[in-house]
Design a protein around this nucleic acid. Structure first.
Lengths: 204, 187
DNA sequence: AGTTTACTTTTCAAAGC
DNA sequence: GCTTTAAAAAGTAAACT
């Protein structure tokens, strides 16, 4: 009976330690990504829900904690791309994406695809662009997405191209390289999306 | 465009069978020209047929997986070639080994662009998977037929997981009617 | 800048780790 | 879970010319 009791304590302690580890990892990555405290709290809640629903079985604590943070950013409307999250995570991007899809499904998070507009304030701010460019970017994204051009395209690449186009239109030009750098996409992607967008807008 | 069902094309057929005899893959690898065998990497020996084009994975147990064929007829033709090659090596092969089709991959075209965002919401986020940051296709799992469809912005799609060619036709029918009743196939 | 090659997703069997 | 095999879809990426 004593052994059973000790085992229970040991299991409980191990569980506590694992939870503390997961929460400290969420904190560490959140700081590195510079997300607000509210997002960390949402991530913690998602992680605890995953824990309660036994979703960690067969997966790494690190992977679930990272996926929870990625999901929390999206839920709070200030997404970080998988690429950005992977840079501060200790699991590879592929596993973060796979784990995110799993917990989003199992916990019925009901998160819609990321809207490129949600990346605009942060990217424009990092580029030191004006409110005017930011507004023009939103307009470009909304008008072209309305025409069905967003289907299947990466939200970051789409946002990056629109920012590049808006910076030209507002005479605050940023190079494709500068925009590519903050959005973590290649210049080739910006070029491709940019061509489609200006054509759809009829800007020649 | 035309009837989406007319655009259905079988891209790959996966099937399994067995010769009813255990094999010494090491010696088969030595005698069979073009055979790839690296047991450290994978327990199966890989043998490719040229016409019809396919790849056969041959195992020590005598079981065989054939993949890459464009039709069920091609699967049978490819495996007939593999069986004969093994017989040439003086290996006993059952007369007519049962061949079971395990998966058929099909492509099709709905003939009109799709707004995947609207479709994701329309079909219900809990019923689909659409993460354009990770993959441009929307993943839609059907219960009957039991297949998985990948829908793309171009209107083209992939149907996989089916056991018979008819599954793809049924799936396309269901997808078209579902999108139509949601009013997402026009515009 | 254009081309080629390659990786992302889904499906399935096989034997073994 | 992973390993290997094939195939399509479209987007993204990297290595070359």
């Amino acid at each position: 009976r004593l052994r059973k009791w000790q085992e229970r304590i040991r299991t409980k302690d191990a569980g506590e330690r694992n939870l503390q580890f997961a929460l400290s990892e969420i904190d560490r990555m959140s700081s590195a990504l510079g997300v607000p405290r509210s997002v960390r709290e949402v991530a913690s809640v998602i992680y605890r829900r995953a824990l309660d629903d036994d979703l960690i079985r067969g997966r790494s604590i690190e992977g679930v904690a990272t996926a929870a943070l990625y999901a929390a950013c999206r839920q709070e409307g200030i997404p970080r791309s998988l690429d950005e999250v992977a840079e501060v995570a200790r699991v590879e991007q592929k596993e973060i994406g796979r784990t995110y899809r799993y917990i989003a499904q199992e916990l019925s998070l009901g998160l819609e695809p990321v809207d490129p507009v949600q990346y605009v304030p942060r990217f424009c701010s990092e580029l030191g662009l004006s409110e005017e460019v930011e507004q023009k970017t939103r307009e470009i994204i909304e008008v072209t997405a309305e025409k069905g051009m967003l289907s299947g395209k990466s939200p970051t690449g789409y946002a990056a191209a629109a920012i590049y186009a808006a910076s030209l239109l507002c005479n605050e030009k940023k190079t494709q390289r500068e925009v590519a750098e903050v959005a973590q996409v290649t210049e080739v992607t910006i070029r491709n999306r940019y061509q489609e967008q200006i054509e759809a807008l009829g800007i020649h | 465009m035309q009837d989406p069902k007319e655009t259905i094309n079988i891209e790959n057929v996966v099937a399994s069978t067995g010769i009813g005899q255990e094999l010494d893959l090491q010696s088969v690898a030595m005698d069979l020209e073009g055979a790839d065998y690296d047991p450290e990497q994978f327990p199966g020996l890989v043998y490719r047929t040229q016409e019809p084009k396919s790849a056969a994975l041959i195992f020590r147990s005598g079981k065989i997986v054939c993949t890459g064929a464009k039709s069920t007829d091609d699967v049978h033709e490819s495996l007939r070639i593999v069986f004969d090659k093994l017989r040439d090596l003086e290996i006993q092969v059952d007369e007519d080994p049962e061949i079971v089709v395990q998966n058929i991959v099909t492509s099709a075209d709905l003939g009109r662009n799709l707004n995947l965002n609207a479709i994701a919401i329309g079909l219900g986020l809990e019923n689909i998977e659409y993460e354009p940051e990770q993959f441009p296709g929307l993943v839609y799992r059907l219960d009957d037929p039991d297949v998985v469809a990948l829908l793309f912005g171009s209107g083209k799609l992939v149907i996989t997981g089916g056991k018979e060619p008819d599954d793809a036709k049924k799936a396309v029918d269901k997808i078209v009617s579902r999108l139509e009743e949601l009013g997402l196939l026009d515009g």
